[in-house]
């Protein structure tokens, strides 16, 4: 695997440290909320943390003060079950009060179990049924191109999600339409609900597959904010074809006993486990 060294500007060391702190804050709050609610998906929320933080707080032009800006960048969390991490990012961006996170999955909450464009400010696409976000993101990118908008579309995919055939239909179409305003980011944590992706449905050499489909592919460490930002800059610089950032991640990242474990895809967090998780996150183990 070639990890991109990156040639573009990326992110300053100071900003990077700030975002790393933010990730630590989000992980703690995520564990607090999922423990309190006894429902929700910890594994894939923890693996996608640096990806979403890099997009919302450095890479993308998203402003809660101007949510209808036609030229805003669009971020789609196609792996909708990681909604808690998305909500943390949107709250921190000012789309709704940070404390509203505590209503996650509650009766009559704005923060539904999976992202809903109708209910939650800042959500660009309702997701949950897997495999549809890349197609919708392609439609958005083509609409923005018709309007001569400079806005970019970012679609965050899960590596279990890409079992769905629609992802590959969209991959073909994005190359056909030369959708260079579209950047997909794969949260490649190698674990899905029933087990390792290699056991459930081996994805093989994903880089080679996307290259064969006509995409620009960039590998990066999906927990290294600097690397993610450089990869997104590289993607934006590629003309005439869509790009995918293959972000190598760890499912359950930051909580030792959750890391790499399919059991933590969507399991409730018991009190004893919560204490250990909080201690690790407070001490910054793995963060």
């Amino acid at each position: 695997m070639a990890i991109s060294a990156g040639t573009s500007a990326g992110i300053s060391a100071e900003d990077r440290r700030k975002l790393e702190k933010l990730c630590q804050k989000f992980r703690r709050k995520l564990i607090d909320v999922l423990h309190a609610k006894q429902t929700g998906h910890p594994g894939g929320s923890l693996s996608v943390c640096e990806i979403l933080v890099s997009l919302y707080f450095h890479q993308a032009n998203v402003d809660s003060g101007n949510p209808g800006d036609p030229n805003r960048d669009r971020i789609i969390l196609s792996k909708g079950h990681a909604a808690p991490m998305l909500y943390l990012a949107l709250a921190e961006k000012g789309f709704f009060p940070y404390g509203e996170i505590d209503t996650l999955r509650d009766f009559e909450t704005r923060l539904q179990g999976h992202p809903s464009i109708k209910d939650t400010p800042g959500v660009e696409l309702s997701t949950g049924p897997l495999g549809l976000g890349l197609s919708a993101g392609l439609g958005m990118a083509l609409a923005l191109r018709l309007d001569r908008s400079p806005a970019r579309v970012y679609v965050v995919l899960g590596d279990g999600e890409i079992n769905e055939g629609t992802v590959w239909e969209a991959a073909m179409a994005a190359a056909k339409f030369k959708a260079d305003g579209l950047t997909a980011i794969l949260d490649w944590n190698r674990v899905q609900l029933d087990g390792a992706t290699d056991d459930v449905m081996p994805s093989g050499d994903l880089g080679a597959k996307f290259v064969a489909f006509g995409w620009n592919t960039i590998h990066c460490d999906g927990h290294d904010i600097g690397a993610i930002c450089r990869a997104c800059d590289e993607a934006a610089a590629a003309k005439g074809r869509p790009s995918i950032v293959l972000a190598h991640t760890v499912k359950g990242k930051g909580v030792s006993f959750m890391e790499g474990k399919s059991a933590w895809h969507g399991s409730p967090i018991k009190d004893a486990d919560y204490e250990i998780a909080r201690r690790e996150l407070d001490e910054g183990v793995g963060a």
Partner: peptide
């Protein structure tokens, strides 16, 4: 699904 993207834009 692409139509959803067009509609949202």
């Amino acid at each position: 699904a692409m139509a959803a993207g067009f509609a949202s834009a």
